[in-house]
Amino acid sequence: MREIYQQLTLRNNVENQRFELDVENKTAFLEYKIEGNKYLLIHTEVPETLEGKGVAAALVEKVFIFIEESKFKFIPLCPYVLSYLKKHPEWLRLTN
């Protein structure tokens, strides 16, 4: 994760079932559903003006940390999350 995003706070918007990260007055988000003790990670979206700046990667990593600290697991359904896992297979430990 880029250093400029490390101090940003991940918000769990339970009502809308999405994790949110505010960057440059815009909101990136990752939609989810919960089944038992697993988050189904469905869709990642980053505002067009933030694309290519590492925002999606920071969002996904913060979500993984949140899930791990919450003692949950996840099922990756989102194409971006799947591609992130290929580059960072250490997070596969949360998919079992």
Rank of each mutant, 00 (worst) to 15 (best):
W91L: 06
H88T: 10
L41D: 00
N13Y: 08
I65E: 11
K71S: 14
P89D: 11
N16P: 01
L21C: 10
S70H: 13
E24Q: 14
N37Y: 12
E51A: 09
E3C: 05
H43Q: 14
L8N: 08
E20P: 11
L8E: 04
Q7Y: 11
R93H: 13
L82G: 05
Y80S: 04
E31C: 12
Y32E: 05
T95F: 07
R2F: 11
V63R: 00
L50H: 03
T44H: 05
G36K: 10
F74R: 00
L40I: 13
K38V: 04
F72G: 02
C78L: 05
K62A: 10
V63Q: 00
Q17G: 04
I75T: 10
E90T: 13
F19Q: 02
E20N: 10
A56D: 01
V63H: 00
E69F: 11
Y39Q: 02
N37G: 06
I65W: 04
V81W: 00
I75H: 05
L8R: 07
L41I: 09
L10V: 08
T9A: 15
M1I: 09
N16E: 15
G52D: 06
Y39C: 07
L85G: 01
F72M: 15
R2C: 01
N37R: 14
K53T: 01
P79H: 04
V55I: 08
K33A: 14
I42G: 08
I75M: 09
E20S: 12
G36T: 06
F74W: 02
M1V: 09
A56H: 02
R11A: 14
L92D: 11
I42L: 15
W91G: 01
Y5E: 09
N25L: 13
L59K: 00
L41P: 01
A58P: 05
I67S: 03
V55C: 01
M1E: 05
Y80D: 00
L85W: 02
Y84G: 01
A56Y: 01
Y5M: 09
K38W: 08
F29G: 03
E51P: 00
S70I: 07
K38R: 15
F29S: 09
K38I: 03
Y84S: 02
A28V: 09
R2Y: 08
S83M: 09
I34N: 06
E20I: 11
Y84I: 04
V23W: 03
T27G: 08
L77I: 05
Q17F: 11
L21P: 05
L40G: 04
Y84V: 03
E35M: 12
Q7W: 07
E61V: 08
L82M: 13
T9R: 14
Q6N: 14
A28M: 10
I67C: 06
E51R: 15
L50E: 03
L77H: 06
E31Q: 15
K86S: 12
Y32M: 07
V63K: 00
N13H: 13
T9G: 11
E61W: 02
L77N: 08
R18N: 09
A58N: 04
T44M: 08
G52T: 02
L94C: 04
L30N: 01
Q17S: 15
K33Q: 15
N13Q: 09
I65K: 12
I75Q: 10
I34A: 07
L92H: 12
